[in-house]
Design a protein around this nucleic acid. Structure first.
Lengths: 219, 219
DNA sequence: GAATTAATTGAACGTTCGTTTTATTATTGT
DNA sequence: ACAATAATAAAACGAACGTTCAATTAATTC
């Protein structure tokens, strides 16, 4: 047999990507075989090599595009000249929304790094570092401006990112909490963690009130 | 050839465990071959099967013992009848110390769950859930006693655990920060995140002072 | 010192893996 | 309609995989 009726390169490639993300997220890169992936797409294994020269090329493509998507999302979400608290809130909102929406792709990008060749690993890590640096900058600027009370900017950035990315481990859409609820809670935890002063400080609530009020940035 | 001079079952088994943790942490469970592991130990692959009947048995043993070690560590570290803030501080100290000390084993236990058979996966997850429940209990008791200001106990517990466990991703001994420094910073971040009131509230610092002072629980 | 047990080797088994090659059919352009 | 090109199938490749088995030697027991 050979070319099948209705076959279309673009559609097949898209189907391969989607199936690959799901299979790798579920079983892991090493555990997913090219034959298994091909079966999921409804094609023979040899057909995959028309779109991705090697299995690792496929993995790298998925990761690179995921990281590029994260960068683009933040570029579009970043506020122009906002104060530190507002910038931090935008970062948190964007990070959580992006990672919940792309749970599987995030899992792949975070868990399968060791399957990349050294130079490709470096490329992905560079993109990740650049993204994380954005958060460090926000934290440092906010700390210098007196908006945040932070002991160690780098450590705080890592702690926040680990905390936020962690949602993909336990969050399941349609369960107890909605995405806006999760986002709101993470925002208030973030603001407390960085010791943020209340943005609108015209009203000065009592200590107890402030302790219980939390931020109410809505996503 | 056959039995080698000086061979000792107990020593070999211990060497297999240690080498397996390191190799799985570095390359992943699927990517590590039994021959590779045997070579690291200095033995032929067949010899491994004297100690572990299958590759998955080896993985499961490593994970189970890691989780049991975590439980034991917390049992020994938990304070008897302390107030919520002190209990939370003990939990954070123990968690960070344990995970920094056993970075590789933690990596294995967190990343290779999908390589377990369903019932073994259930066993490990049960142990993990029991450990996490300890934190939820501390948070809930503290919130009810008014010592913490928490919106969602379960979500806060997950956020804290993700944040703390994240140290194994970036922490390297002997670099910029020492273990006590990291622990102290994580403690202060944790206390702010849960909205902990200052334990010793005899002295009431001003808002600005309190914002900048942070907790100073030393590890 | 002989018998037993413990620890390991070396070779092999069947399977599965990623990948390549070649042939074949569908689609597109002229 | 016919040539060119795109998309796939089918089969095969060598390598590596987890695992088993029989043979062999070291240590221990009696």
């Amino acid at each position: 047999m050979a070319r099948t009726t209705g076959s279309d390169g673009e559609r097949t490639e898209a189907a391969v990507r989607e199936a690959a993300v799901n299979l790798i997220a579920r079983y892991g890169y090493e555990a997913m075989s090219m034959r298994q992936l091909a079966a999921e797409v409804g094609v023979q294994a040899a057909a995959l090599y028309r779109y991705f020269p090697t299995k690792e090329d496929l993995l790298f493509t998925l990761m690179r595009e995921h990281m590029e998507g994260l960068r683009e999302a933040w570029e579009n979400a970043r506020p122009a000249g906002a104060d530190p608290a507002e910038q931090l809130a935008a970062y948190v909102r964007n990070h959580i929304a992006f990672h919940i929406e792309r749970r599987h792709a995030t899992h792949v990008s975070n868990m399968e790094l060791r399957s990349l060749s050294p130079d490709r690993l470096t490329q992905i890590l560079r993109m990740r570092t650049a993204y994380e640096k954005e958060l460090r900058t926000i934290l440092r600027d906010g700390a210098e401006a007196g908006a945040f009370a932070i002991e160690d900017t780098g450590l705080t950035a890592m702690a926040l990112i680990q905390m936020m990315t962690g949602v993909i481990v336990w969050f399941r859409p349609g369960e107890r909490l909605s995405v806006p609820e999760v986002t709101a809670t993470y925002l208030s935890m973030t603001m407390r963690l960085v010791g943020a002063k209340i943005a609108d400080s015209a009203a000065r609530p009592s200590d107890a009130q402030r302790m219980l009020s939390h931020f109410d940035f809505r996503a």
